[in-house]
Simulated assay, not measured.
Amino acid sequence: MPKSASRTPAAPTPASPNPAAKSNKPTKPQPDSQPQPTPPYHRDAIFHHHGPFSPSFMTEAIRTLVRTLPLDPDEPQAWQDRRAHAALLGLAALHPRDEIEVMIGVQALAAYHAASACWRIGMNLRRPHGESTRHITTAASAARTFDAMLRALERRQVKPLAVPIGRPAPRIWTPDDENPSATMDHMLDRCLATRNRDAANDLTEPPIAWTEHDLAAAREFLERERIEQENEGLDIANTEGILPGGGMIVMEDPTPQQAAYLARRVGLGYRREFEANRLKGIHQLPKIRPIRPGDLIP
């Protein structure tokens, strides 16, 4: 019987280190690559003197918002101050990122206070009537406006601004930034300088000097053009009885040309009367007056 050869298992050879092989262990991020935590930003910073927005802009925005608040003269001053402070807290809660979002927030809060005031007027009555139901309808409309303004602000805040993402950083505002009058004076000086420079470079003809004869001719031309427009479509050449001033006396049996002319003069008279009343603040139509034979139609 042949002798079986003994087999001994070969010792495992150590694997050569491969620097290119990927390790399954998660790599520890470097300290520099970790995102830095955003520093806390107080939402009331928009009202600070050195906040992200110009002090003059925020002062005007606050003034506009406070002027929309419903104020009751009979309530204590502390209640009015509390309402104004609550409105400012509501504006800060919207987290506006630029001046446009501040204006949207002011409009939204104005609509909210309008709805609240109309709810109070429409609901604080024992039995509803025409006035109360009208105020309730107005309150519902203002409430829908408030919701629409909030949705518009939310849609805008979803998109990043053109500036880096995040809340705007505080700024150091100079005294010129806090003085709107100085800013407007500076802009006025710039506009005047540009206009003067353009006027110096503009080679135009000298201004026209109107003489009394030229003014009289212009008035005569305008008067003739007005009469032609008033008599457009009428047969003036075959219309008898026209007075020098353009008027006519109503006859017993006018011809078709005279009837058309009288109707045109009556309509022009009512139009002139309506325009004169509008200058006096009266917007009602003139009363139609009867016309009798012998009346003078100017």
Rank of each mutant, 00 (worst) to 15 (best):
Q229C: 05
L88P: 07
L279P: 04
E225T: 12
A117V: 04
F57E: 06
R224S: 14
T145S: 13
P9F: 03
G246D: 02
W79Q: 15
R155M: 09
D72F: 06
I172L: 01
F57V: 00
P170G: 01
Q157D: 08
R120L: 08
A169F: 00
R126A: 15
I236T: 11
A92Q: 07
G246L: 00
R224F: 04
H85D: 12
F274A: 15
M248N: 02
G245E: 09
E75Y: 05
G51I: 02
L192P: 04
L65C: 05
H85N: 13
E228V: 02
N124W: 02
E240K: 11
T137H: 12
Y270P: 08
D253E: 14
I62L: 04
E230P: 03
A199Y: 01
C118F: 06
R156A: 02
S141M: 06
M184Q: 14
M58R: 10
A115Y: 01
D198V: 10
L69N: 10
R171E: 04
S132M: 08
L296K: 11
C118A: 14
G233C: 05
R292S: 12
E154P: 04
A263Q: 09
T174L: 03
H283T: 11
P35Y: 01
P37Y: 06
F57S: 07
D44H: 12
V266G: 00
H186M: 09
C191A: 14
R144W: 05
E205Y: 11
K159S: 10
M58Q: 08
P29H: 09
G90D: 09
Y41Q: 14
R272Y: 03
T38F: 05
H283S: 11
K3G: 08
E154W: 07
E101Y: 02
R289D: 10
Q284S: 15
